[in-house]
Design a protein around this nucleic acid. Structure first.
Lengths: 252, 252
DNA sequence: TTAATTTGTTCTCTATTGTAGAACGTCGTT
DNA sequence: AACGACGTTCTACAATAGAGAACAAATTAA
């Protein structure tokens, strides 16, 4: 998933891999992790004890199992603080949400995925309780993902779609050649579409946000039930997204 | 700040300390970090390269300086996912926010600080753009902090106030004996007060949320400008907070 | 323009330290 | 009572993290 050609401290890499196990399941035991990663129990134990002492992992005194600790929150807050794209985009996202009355997402690329940074709900709509902030999706099946891919160089793009194209719904594009055509079509029309490729019944429109050098900085998308995503509304959404993406780009 | 008696992997501890530098300032250079922590540049460089390869740190190709990377978001999301207190408390927090029309916070203790997990804004009020989620404050000067301290054992409590009591406003309690009295008063009355001790013009009321064993699990608080925080309203807020804290506690 | 300073980066050697492997104590289960 | 699964502890060896200097690139000063 990550290029590890530049890993200098193997123990740190290993430790982070241990930590990342918790993103898939919580709580986890020492044995469980050691089996998953092929490490020795004592090794995993030492890593977990260190993380625990630093607040990145907590141990349930009853079961002895581990889960992530509070300290990760402080990091994520600092990350968002330091990222000016979020600061700049947030007020615009609110305007978009109120204008179109649908969910608006800001996401940024990481490897072959997009990570959701912010999600804004229109004022009148009840906020869904499960926040997607920090969640990630594969690029090849999302609207922003395809919008971003269409702005990449051919090599970058290929690197992002080299893995297996897993089908999440019957609409997911799993054929690599089809996908390349779709990305090319995305590039030409200037926005990405997700036609229920991630979740049945949900469609999305997304555009890429480029910085002054033309490099992809982030992505902006609108998500809605397919019933509210007819061709006319899609065009309306696209127009709004492109307008605001332009405004944001000017400020980067 | 953290007990490091149980640190088994020194290089990991060191690496995390490097990572934590970014919570104070971003971006940071190799030299800057090495000076701050008293480490060698090559050491810091190796650490940063490894973090970069894993996505926890990003390097600006222009300046060569570093900032936090996207991967920390995935961790924080997993943390919040795994923490059922947030899942349970969130819908109640919405009710509170709409009932009282003020800002409602959920926070959890970490060392001598409280970390803000969730912040809910009343429907009619515009959400402030800067999210405090992940931010932390010292216990001794916040309403939740004092509510939590008042539920701790004397030893735990002392450990949390052993540092210097920094004054953030002229109202901050900086005398340790005064603070002990205030915490005792908090314990008796059942809720904590922050009388502009963190920020001038802002008052808070807070209560602790205990689990079935009576251990502090989290804290709930309401924050508002002091003009909207007269004695009658404080009593109203306290009543609401205690009612909902009770509901949440039953579900833990 | 050139010199001086500061930056991130690279290198090498070796003492540190992470870790394999087994053994231990403690649960809940059979 | 015996088992199995768990988190934990221990030790000895070898891998490797890190000190320290030297590097190149970039910035500033003269």
């Amino acid at each position: 998933m990550q290029k590890d050609g530049e890993v200098k401290i193997k123990s740190l890499k290993k430790s982070l891999e241990v930590l990342e196990c918790f993103t898939q399941k919580q709580p986890l035991g020492v044995t469980e992790i050691s089996e998953k990663l092929g490490l020795y129990k004592s090794n995993v134990h030492n890593i977990l004890m260190t993380f625990t002492a630093m607040g990145y992992v907590e141990q349930d005194p009853e079961s002895g199992k581990f889960r992530l600790g509070v300290s990760v929150m402080t990091l994520s807050r600092a990350f968002r603080e330091g990222l000016n794209i979020a600061k700049i985009a947030l007020p615009f996202m609110r305007e978009i949400a109120n204008e179109v009355g649908e969910l608006v997402y800001l996401s940024i690329p990481r490897g072959d995925e997009v990570v959701y940074l912010e999600a804004i709900y229109p004022d009148n709509q009840r906020m869904v309780s499960k926040s997607v902030i920090g969640e990630c999706s594969k690029m090849y099946c999302t609207s922003v993902g395809k919008a971003i891919l269409s702005q990449f160089s051919p090599e970058e793009m290929e690197r992002c779609i080299e893995g297996k194209l897993e089908a999440f719904t019957e609409y997911t594009i799993t054929d690599k050649e089809k996908l390349r055509e779709e990305i090319e079509a995305t590039r030409i029309r200037g926005y990405g579409l997700d036609n229920m490729e991630v979740m049945f019944g949900i469609k999305c429109v997304g555009v890429a946000i480029l910085n002054y050098e033309g490099k992809v900085e982030a992505g902006l998308s609108i998500s809605a039930p397919s019933l509210r995503m007819g061709e006319e509304r899609i065009q309306e959404f696209v127009k709004v997204l492109q307008t605001y993406a332009g405004k944001i780009q000017k400020m980067l």
